[in-house]
C-alpha cells in the first residue's frame, strides 16, 4: 500500500512538472520588427506574429485603389458608411478598440483588421488570405 502511494506521488509530480514547464514557457515572446502600422494596442501582445511590411503605395497601385475610404472608411452614428469621407491619419483603434482579453491583446481590433484585408482579397480573388501570407515568420 505504502509503495503504491509512493508511486502515485512520484508519477503525479512528474506529470504536474511536465504541465508546469509547458505553462512557464508561455512567457517567451516572439520578436516583432517590421511593423509599419501604427498599432499601440497590440504591441504588448505575445501571440501575434509580426506583420510583414505593408507597402502601401505598391499595394494600392497594384490593386488599383484610388479612393482612400475603401480602407480608411468612416461610419456615421447609424453605422452607415459615409461616402467621400476617409479616415486616414486616424488610428484604427480610435473606433475599433475592443476590450482587452486576458493576454492584453486587443483581439477585436485584430479581427477587424483581418476582415478588412481578407474580405477584399477574397472578393477580388487576389492577395493573401491565409495567416502565414501576411504574418511572416
Amino acid at each position: 500500500m505504502k509503495k503504491i502511494i509512493h508511486n502515485i506521488i512520484i508519477l503525479t509530480s512528474i506529470f504536474v512538472t511536465g504541465i508546469g514547464l509547458i505553462l512557464m514557457s508561455a512567457g517567451i515572446v516572439y520578436a516583432d520588427d517590421c511593423f509599419n502600422i501604427n498599432n499601440e494596442s497590440i504591441d504588448k501582445n505575445t501571440n501575434t506574429r509580426p506583420f510583414i511590411c505593408f507597402e502601401h503605395d505598391i499595394h494600392n497601385e497594384t490593386a488599383g485603389i484610388e479612393n482612400c475610404s475603401e480602407c480608411h472608411h468612416i461610419y456615421d452614428e447609424h453605422e452607415e458608411l459615409v461616402p467621400d469621407e476617409s479616415s486616414e491619419g486616424q488610428p484604427c483603434s480610435e473606433c475599433h478598440a475592443d476590450s482587452k482579453n486576458s493576454n492584453n491583446t486587443d483581439i477585436g481590433l485584430a479581427a477587424k483588421y483581418h476582415k478588412l484585408c481578407r474580405d477584399c482579397h477574397l472578393s477580388r480573388e487576389k492577395g493573401p488570405v491565409v495567416c502565414g501570407e501576411c504574418h511572416r515568420k
Binding site: G27, I28, Y30, R49, S102, I107, G108, A111
Partner: peptide, 15 residues
C-alpha cells in the same frame, strides 16, 4: 472573434 464576435483566453504560441 471575426465570425461570431466572441473570444476567450488564448495560449501563447510557444505553449
Amino acid at each position: 472573434k471575426e465570425n461570431f464576435n466572441i473570444s476567450w483566453f488564448t495560449l501563447s504560441n510557444t505553449v
